[in-house]
Simulated scan of single mutants.
Amino acid sequence: MTKLISKTIALLILTSFSMLKSQSVKEILKQNGSFRKDTIFSIKSDSKETYLPVTIIKGKEKGPVFTIVAGIHGYEYPPIIAVQELLKEIEPENIKGSLIIIPIANVESFLKRVPFVNPLDQKNLNTAFPGLSNGTPTDQIAHLITKEIIPNSTIFLDIHGGDASEDLLPFVCYYNRKDTPENTKRAHELSVKLGIQYVVSYPYTLTSTEPAKYAFKEATQQGITALSIEAGKLGTVQKDNVDLIKTAVYNMLENSGNYAVKKSKTVNQKSTVLLNQQDYIRVPENGIFYSELKSGDKVKKNQILGYISDEFGNKKYDIVSQTTGIILYKVGTPPVNKGETLFCIGYNE
């Protein structure tokens, strides 16, 4: 009986959400005046249903359209909680231009506590862009963000953190797209003013017809100034990372010209460290992972970073660094599966 009541309530909530969605993002942005509007994009695929929540905050004065996305991975909690707090704090009268905010992009992953993938179709939204209009729920979410959100953005910010198994060093990143130098320069300028010490630039080699896979790479491909913040780890809420994300967002909004009121903030006084190369160490075989290292630790080339054993405790592989750099993120839990990213080491050359 309890399950039946829960399902009925969930259906009623989804139905009411579906009724709210009556306009496109572009139509809402064209409306006059200063306002906040919460809207829902309903998603149906066969018998599976979900939704994409979107908030639009428009100020009285003209300005950039700044998009903030959290929860592409629903188990990455600090970005989601930080955006929830921002939604409570930001008032339309303090905004120049507009904000488009997706508070939880992967609602099913969040509600079901499933790391990395959407439980409705077992797909990773972070590798699904540009998506498909008639695909599975994950495909459709990616398609909606690709077609409804990104083209209406001046600046696109995708906020991530360490998922259930990931130990992660906070950093901000962007793609070094050389054929759009103004966007790349703007992304770099915004990055170094966030108050996050580590700034990572990724190489950009996509052609116009290749799938971007990642949300902020899709925005980069569309010619939008795009960045991503990474903060939080191991599938828990850490207040310091929530506060770090909020401070970074406020700093970015002020520097983009979107926030009209000076926001009290604490800026990291440590000098910015730019990392323009990454070395990804993959898991060679299923097993149990041992390492005394953590995110933020510095490592040297040929250093043993840890080892993998089998179920009987027999060591199978030493994990050796091929570069000298700093651990941006690593697997922070014992089980590992072949092909997963075990370490990401950032360095500069």
Rank of each mutant, 00 (worst) to 15 (best):
T180I: 06
L190S: 03
K178T: 12
I159T: 02
D158T: 05
S191R: 05
P170G: 09
D179A: 09
D167R: 04
K193M: 03
Y175F: 15
G195N: 05
S165H: 13
G162R: 04
C173V: 15
L194Q: 11
A164V: 06
R177G: 08
A187G: 12
C173N: 13
R186W: 14
D167V: 09
K178A: 13
D158N: 15
K185I: 12
L168M: 14
H188D: 09
H160M: 10
G195L: 05
G162K: 03
G195C: 09
G195M: 05
D158I: 00
T180L: 00
A187P: 02
P181K: 10
L168K: 08
K185T: 15
D163L: 09
A187C: 10
D158W: 01
L157G: 01
D179H: 06
K178F: 00
D167Y: 00
S191G: 12
N183M: 08
G162T: 09
E166A: 03
Y175C: 08
E182A: 12
S191A: 14
G162A: 04
S191T: 04
L190Y: 11
I196A: 02
L168N: 09
L168H: 10
K178G: 07
Y174R: 07
K178M: 04
C173E: 13
R177I: 10
H160V: 04
P170V: 11
E189P: 00
C173I: 10
N176W: 12
E189L: 14
G161P: 01
I159D: 02
H188G: 03
E166P: 02
K178L: 12
N183E: 14
L190D: 03
L157F: 12
E182D: 13
H160T: 03
G162S: 09
I196L: 00
H160E: 06
Y175T: 09
L190F: 15
H188V: 02
V172E: 01
R186H: 10
G195F: 04
Y174F: 15
Y174C: 03
